[in-house]
């Protein structure tokens, strides 16, 4: 009985780790090895792929943008969600439950639904194609969740 209970989480973790392992494995292989043969670990260990990423601006700009966006998103979500979460957990006020569900509904809106209007809205206020726009757009989905979890 004891033996079986630890087996379950172990198997699950192996299941979780396999794709990650494969991704890491691939990242250290040369293109030839990836396409040419099937190997469980890199025969020719290479850092070329990483060197490419960090030296080619088209690659690292992407990461830089992502990072800006993540930081902005977090800051906006937390600063806005924290007081609200506090209010929801401590006080009872008029329309509390309805408001809470309404916030939740925003998470229920399929991102695809908002793709177009966002495009137009942010063009209108000159925010388009800036990390702030992406961050703002994403707060729509994260803020309700942040309020809920905090």
């Amino acid at each position: 009985m004891r033996r079986i209970t630890w087996l379950v989480p172990t198997l699950y973790i192996i299941f979780l780790m396999m794709p990650i392992y494969w991704l890491i494995n691939m990242s250290f292989k040369t293109t030839n090895e990836i396409l040419g043969s099937f190997t469980l670990w890199p025969k020719e260990f290479t850092l070329d792929n990483y060197i490419t990423i960090f030296t080619d601006p088209t690659w690292y700009n992407g990461y830089f943008n992502s990072l800006t966006y993540v930081v902005m998103n977090t800051v906006i979500s937390v600063t806005v969600a924290l007081p609200a979460a506090y209010a929801f957990s401590r006080y009872r006020f008029l329309g509390e439950k309805h408001l809470f569900f309404w916030l939740l509904t925003n998470r229920m809106a399929p991102p695809a639904v908002f793709a177009l209007p966002f495009f137009q809205l942010y063009s209108a206020v000159n925010l388009f194609d800036t990390p702030l726009a992406v961050a703002l757009a994403h707060t729509l989905f994260n803020v309700p969740l942040a309020v809920w979890i905090l």
Binding site: I76, T79, V80, A81, P83, A84, Y86, A87, F88, R90, Y91, R92, F93, L94, E96, L99, L103, N106, T139, L140, V143, P144, V147
Partner: peptide, 17 residues
């Protein structure tokens, strides 16, 4: 506790959303 002023804390979220 019932406190209608709690709305002030919720307003930023409401506006952003």
């Amino acid at each position: 506790t019932t406190n209608q002023k709690a709305w002030f804390l919720v307003i930023p979220v409401v506006l952003l959303v």
